[in-house]
């Protein structure tokens, strides 16, 4: 049986001021190796200024089969959007 290194998810901040964004995954023995591999694989052309690596097993994802029920509390709350409120067209800055 071959040694299988754990799977890591890679997140990259492409420039200062932007969020880290998921870019893909890779296998590595530990965090340091994951970081170096992420640099070599995902930022060969300066695509990033910061990298996060997270071992995939630590990520918990919502279940798409329960997507409807899970997200439906937001469905009947149109009053959370500015367009819910009528204000006269003649007004500005509101």
């Amino acid at each position: 049986m071959d040694t299988q290194w754990p799977l890591w998810e890679v997140f990259i901040r492409s420039k200062q001021g932007l969020d880290h964004k998921h870019v893909g995954s890779l296998h590595a023995a530990d965090a340091q190796m994951a970081m170096e591999n992420a640099r070599d694989v995902y930022t060969r052309r300066r695509e990033g200024v910061s990298i996060w690596v997270v071992e995939s097993k630590h990520i918990h994802a919502s279940n798409p089969d329960e997507q409807e029920a899970f997200f439906d509390p937001a469905d009947d709350k149109a009053y959370r959007h500015p367009t819910f409120y009528e204000v006269p067209d003649s007004l500005t800055h509101i």
Binding site: T3, A29, D30, M33
Partner: peptide, 16 residues
């Protein structure tokens, strides 16, 4: 490359 993969895994485990 097998020994490299094994060594890296062993090293990671030891550090943990």
């Amino acid at each position: 490359g097998a020994w490299v993969r094994e060594a890296a895994a062993a090293y990671a485990k030891k550090r943990m």
